[in-house]
């Protein structure tokens, strides 16, 4: 494994007077507006990035509330109809003794989404003020959030599979509830919010801090 490393002291592209396309990695001199190779807009630092992150974060969070209030699944058996919210369904499973499955559902649809909201908020706040958490850890956190974001759609897919498969006329039928729509929206907006975050800002604070110390 070879590292593209030339000097120990890392110089950022901004200090070098160049700007890099974040999409295709082509490097241009400062002041160029559009990448001629891929057509992507070139920005040294996306100053409006945080506003977009927060706007999408708020929409995602607002969608997450009805996702927990409305029922996720409607199970119709021979004699009665049962509507389960996400948490209600998990508690039901726990009463039936399958604690393992209940724990997986709670972690996948409650703990991870909430942790994702908190992680994005933390990252967005941490770039505006000095943070005690190291750059490498925050970069790692960002990559984890970006990676995990897509996996929350698993809930929606499970609902889709269950409600198309379990359609046995009179015996039993499972139908999706309104919460599935809000949950999907919440996941999508959280993903967009994480994508809007310009991770280069994590590393700027380090250099500013260093400069102040030396002076």
């Amino acid at each position: 494994m070879e590292r593209a490393e030339q000097t120990r002291e890392v110089i950022s592209a901004r200090d070098l007077g160049v700007v890099a396309c974040t999409r295709c990695l082509q490097v241009w001199p400062q002041g160029v507006q559009t990448c001629a190779r891929c057509g992507h807009k070139l920005v040294q630092r996306d100053l409006k990035s945080l506003q977009r992150v927060w706007a999408l974060w708020i929409i995602g969070f607002m969608c997450y509330i009805p996702a927990n209030i409305y029922p996720m699944l409607r199970t119709r058996t021979l004699f009665h109809v049962q509507e389960d919210t996400i948490v209600g369904g998990a508690i039901e499973l726990m009463h039936h003794g399958s604690i393992g499955v209940a724990a997986i559902i709670l972690i996948a649809s409650v703990v991870i989404p909430l942790a994702k909201f908190m992680a994005i908020a933390f990252l967005a706040i941490s770039v505006t003020r000095p943070s005690t958490v190291s750059q490498n850890q925050r970069q790692l956190l960002y990559e984890v959030v970006e990676y995990i974001g897509r996996w929350s759609m698993i809930d929606i897919f499970v609902v889709a599979i269950l409600s198309s498969l379990v359609q046995l006329k009179v015996l039993v039928a499972i139908n999706p509830g309104l919460a599935s729509l809000f949950f999907a929206l919440s996941v999508i907006f959280t993903m967009l919010s994480a994508q809007a975050f310009d991770s280069r800002m994590i590393w700027d604070a380090q250099q500013q801090g260093k400069g102040q110390k030396q002076e």
């Binding site: 030339q6 890392v10 890099a20 974040t22 001199p29 280069r200 590393w203 700027d204």
Partner: peptide, 25 residues
């Protein structure tokens, strides 16, 4: 005049660190 790309450099898209380009095998 079309700007000239800096093909001798590579920049990390995540942290903006700049390196002189050395193509790995």
């Amino acid at each position: 005049a079309a700007p000239i790309p800096r093909n001798d450099l590579i920049v990390c898209p995540h942290c903006d660190a700049a390196y002189t380009l050395a193509r790995p095998g």
